[in-house]
């Protein structure tokens, strides 16, 4: 009987540990909603972008490779913003910054003329969104379709554009 109780306790413990850890998101999974404030302090929900192809870009002003990538993202945004895709109409970027100082975050937005959605809770790596999305490193991104399904994970440069082109029907500038 004691053995049985011990086994049950161990199983409960393992079960609770596995549930307390954030799950890795994979291709085909629905991207969880993110509701964070933009620079003005207005909350912007990821789910308001349903029906669009969305690139969720996790970055920070202190992450050099992330900052270096911004001009490339700007080019993609300009090129595909009004395009029609197999599952979605229009391309949007939802930038999530892991900055902790508004000034630094704002500085990069201004410097690179970033004109797509930018949100942050200014909590650095302690941001709950880092846990929800099981972030392991920066830069990190996810491409989601109009249904909110993840269709590509952590692609950069040409590989990212190739993934966008793969679902492109018509490019309207």
């Amino acid at each position: 009987m004691k053995k049985l109780i011990l086994i049950a306790t161990v199983l409960c413990l393992l079960f609770s540990i596995s549930f307390s850890q954030s799950k890795e998101l994979n291709i085909g999974d629905i991207a969880p909603d993110i509701r964070l404030p933009n620079i003005k302090g207005d909350t912007v929900s990821l789910y308001t972008l349903k029906n669009k192809i969305v690139l969720i870009d996790f970055w920070a002003s202190w992450c050099a490779p992330c900052v270096n990538e911004q001009p490339k993202l700007a080019a993609l945004y300009k090129k595909y913003k009004n395009s029609v895709f197999t599952v979605g109409k229009g391309f949007e970027i939802y930038g999530v910054s892991l900055d902790n100082k508004k000034k630094s975050w704002q500085g990069i937005i201004k410097k690179y003329n970033i004109n797509w959605i930018q949100v942050s809770d200014l909590q650095f790596w302690a941001s709950p969104v880092a846990k929800t999305y099981n972030l392991q490193e920066l830069p990190f991104n996810l491409l989601i379709n109009g249904k909110g399904e993840i269709i590509a994970k952590n692609l950069h440069g040409d590989k990212l554009e190739k993934a966008i082109k793969k679902i492109l029907i018509r490019s309207d500038k």
């Binding site: 650095f124 790596w125 302690a126 880092a130 846990k131 392991q136 490193e137």
Partner: peptide, 15 residues
């Protein structure tokens, strides 16, 4: 070695 999230926060250490 990786970052504070992976090597500290995720391990449940004191914050």
């Amino acid at each position: 070695p990786q970052n504070i999230k992976v090597d500290w926060i995720d391990k449940g250490f004191a914050i």
